[in-house]
């Protein structure tokens, strides 16, 4: 969505005397540019809504026709982590809305601060999500074709490690970029990478929260199959598939037939949501870069507003995902 809101500032060849630099050549007034960008963003959002609608339709069809699967499966989802992540996203929405306000009032410091908090919240959310995924994969709760719930943990922390690895690399890269920028006296880069490095550390805070929150809330996240972790145990069971429904039926009397469908839907829904979070982080980083360059002005805050709309939509999707996936009885 970046290209929707980006002005042709660089391309503007000013033949009209009163054409400010941020105003693209084919617009008459800043307001026209802002209204157009905003309408474009709303149109993008409604295509996002229709995009997610397919997942909600799939969810509704399977829940209506196989409620037993949902009742069985919900016990594997940790309500406390879901609620925690809801609060994290709501907080990020608040800071995002505040960032929009700051950009409208040309309060650049506030804008930078709020953008940074929003990015940090996104990383925090993803950290919690990584713990949730790894817990499920540890006990064989994969999508339908690999679905094989077991009473034992497999692979233990290794799955969590692999999920964390990209973020470790990102954090290290950002810290390195910060240090290099500092050494080269590249002020803009130093501040940009520094803020992002700090924010990315929130991912690991999220991982920590993923362990602490359920313990504090006293909820049992892993359902009846949960036992203590056995780190380092071989993970050959994880790849064993129970694709054949008849087999699964005979093998595991506890889980209803085709229970894996729930987890398929769960992973696609939360996975695509997470992809949108990551997209949002990139867009927010772009805003941060421009905010550090002081590019936003009283008549030119459209990009902040548009990314804000996108970010709220991501929040909106989660507002529905949380009760639909976590709060089932």
């Amino acid at each position: 969505m970046a290209s929707i809101v980006e002005p042709e500032a660089a391309a503007t060849h000013d033949h009209h005397g009163d054409h400010p630099e941020f105003l693209a050549h084919h617009f008459e007034t800043p307001q026209q540019q802002y209204d157009t960008g905003k309408l474009g963003m709303w149109l993008f959002l409604i295509q996002e809504i229709l995009f997610f609608s397919g997942l909600f339709v799939a969810y509704a069809v399977y829940r209506a026709n196989h409620p037993e699967i949902f009742v069985y499966a919900h016990q594997f989802l940790d309500k406390s982590l879901g609620a925690f992540n809801t609060v994290v996203l709501l907080l990020s929405s608040l800071t995002m809305a505040w960032a929009v306000r700051d950009s409208q009032l040309v309060n650049n410091r506030g804008l930078i601060r709020n953008l940074a908090i929003t990015i940090a919240c996104a990383f925090l959310f993803l950290g919690v999500k990584a713990v949730e995924y790894s817990h499920k994969w540890d006990i064989g709760l994969y999508w339908a074709s690999k679905f094989a719930p077991t009473a034992e943990h497999h692979g233990g922390s290794m799955i969590l490690f692999w999920l964390c690895l990209p973020f470790i690399l990102i954090s290290v890269a950002l810290i390195a970029a910060t240090v290099v920028s500092k050494q080269k006296n590249y002020e803009q880069g130093y501040r940009f990478y520094g803020i992002l490095a700090l924010a990315s550390v929130a991912f690991f805070v999220g991982v920590g929260c993923g362990f602490v929150v359920p313990a504090v809330a006293g909820s049992d996240s892993h359902g009846p199959a949960h036992v203590e972790e056995h780190a380092g145990e071989s993970d050959h069971h994880v790849v064993a598939t129970h694709a054949d429904p008849a087999h699964a039926l005979a093998d595991d009397v506890e889980s209803p037939r085709n229970a894996g469908i729930f987890f398929s839907i769960y992973y696609v829904m939360t996975g695509l949501h997470a992809v949108h979070i990551i997209g949002g982080v990139i867009a927010l980083a772009w805003l941060l870069w421009r905010a550090l360059k002081r590019q936003f002005q009283a008549e030119y805050f459209g990009p902040v507003d548009s990314v804000g709309l996108y970010w709220h939509l991501v929040d909106l999707v989660w507002i529905y995902l949380f009760p639909l996936l976590y709060l089932i009885h």
Binding site: V100, A298, F301
Partner: peptide
């Protein structure tokens, strides 16, 4: 702020949150 900007009051933002 510009005539087409509509900054939300902090009270409002916090209240909604």
């Amino acid at each position: 702020h510009a005539s087409f900007a509509h900054p939300m009051a902090p009270r409002m933002l916090l209240g909604v949150f």
